[in-house]
Nucleic acid binder design. Sequence first.
DNA 1: CGCGTCATTGAAATACTTCAACGACCGTGG
DNA 2: CCACGGTCGTTGAAGTATTTCAATGACGCG
Lengths: 252, 252
Amino acid sequence: MRKPRSSCPGCPSREKGLCGALADDDLCRLGSVSRQRRLRAGEAIHIEGEVPPSFCAIVSGVVKLMKSLPNGRQQIVGLYGAGDFLGRPFGGEARATAIAASEVEICWFPRATIESLAASSGAVKDWLLEAITDELEKAQEWIVLLGRMTAEQKMAVFLLQVLRTAPEARAARVLARDRAIELPLSRTEIADYLGLTIETVSRQLARLREGGVISAGNTRSLIVHRPDVLAAIVDGTQPQAYAAPAPVQVDA
Amino acid sequence: MRKPRSSCPGCPSREKGLCGALADDDLCRLGSVSRQRRLRAGEAIHIEGEVPPSFCAIVSGVVKLMKSLPNGRQQIVGLYGAGDFLGRPFGGEARATAIAASEVEICWFPRATIESLAASSGAVKDWLLEAITDELEKAQEWIVLLGRMTAEQKMAVFLLQVLRTAPEARAARVLARDRAIELPLSRTEIADYLGLTIETVSRQLARLREGGVISAGNTRSLIVHRPDVLAAIVDGTQPQAYAAPAPVQVDA
DNA sequence: CGCGTCATTGAAATACTTCAACGACCGTGG
DNA sequence: CCACGGTCGTTGAAGTATTTCAATGACGCG
């Protein structure tokens, strides 16, 4: 009957996520009511203004949290990946809409289960507290980016962030040259994330390409030749013209 | 020896703040190690990169949380007032600098006390969780403001926010006409809050003045004649030219 | 093959910034 | 008391980054 500690093998929530903070019997309780779900890109998980009936953990894929303005413009206020948790214990209705940005697998629990789990377990509250604190810190960094950075700097931050969260990031140093990356977002989504227009995003990428900092694969992938230049752009060194093109050229 | 529930009379943390969530004996424990402190505008409470030795509750005044960029530009990432709590249970070093924006009174506790309090009391954790969740939601709204709003809209949001948090806000409806308000921030601070330059802030206020939406007191105070116009500016109705000047004129 | 979506590129418009000068306010010290 | 210097806010003019509008190109799918 009991689920052993080794249940959900390979699920990112088991190690770094919420489920790792759970005692065995709580994990069992959660496991018995959880349901896996697979979403296609564009499908909504919960919608602004509605009370989400559930919490969920992201098993794989990327989810974007968005807010819309009356005029129809949108802004992505958060991005979540494998191991991240979606939903808040307090707060009735959702203040933003969560949508799958790629194909996404989620693990899905009734609201009441998590709430009673949190009520009985200090460890669960601790985990939630820490997760939300992290999220707040990221949000504050994003505030700085949106308030005080140029389009060029925003683009550089974004690319470095993708570099950092790429699958083989731990092994290869973030500043290693000539690394290929997959962009988790479309141009429109990048624009909504960085507070720019899609055209500006496109032009900034073109500029980086011309400067030899990156080179294009297809639209969803590219190679970052000079992450050091991206970093220099972010802290405002590297004023305008980029350094000499990457010495190591890829085949072309 | 025990502090009765009626201790710290008038302190905003007792009703809506953390101290309201405390059991009597915990409150006593906290009271015995707390110290009041008064800060002048500009004094720092804790500094980015340093481990704050303490937590504190704001008794009166306004505290700004700021982050600095390498180029020296600054961005306010949060604003805290009476009853708000400063400091996080997790997280060693502070990720931002907290500075008194006005004359401020704080109630000050050693880090260890709060941490042990949180460890033993579920109610304290709940309070922290709720407080941080609120803060995150505000941060996300600010992300939308910074990413997608024009200077005019940002200014309108700011004025409405001041209107909402003004002392007599509960009594007078937020949308009541001709209310006088005190600005809690200097022009420079408003600029750092809204992600603008000081000149743009000044010009937007001038425009609102010309349109009869507000009128000037001294630099730190003004009268909002038409909060409804401010609201219309925020949702993008009220394209450019403002409505007719306020029918009710102040003496002049 | 043609259509729809998504990305790129160009040219013009514009919102905001930057640079600069000026005015108001405030406390200090003569 | 008034002159002085400093900080802070306002205003103007010029510059620039980003947006907007518009056209074209690439890709995928029926």
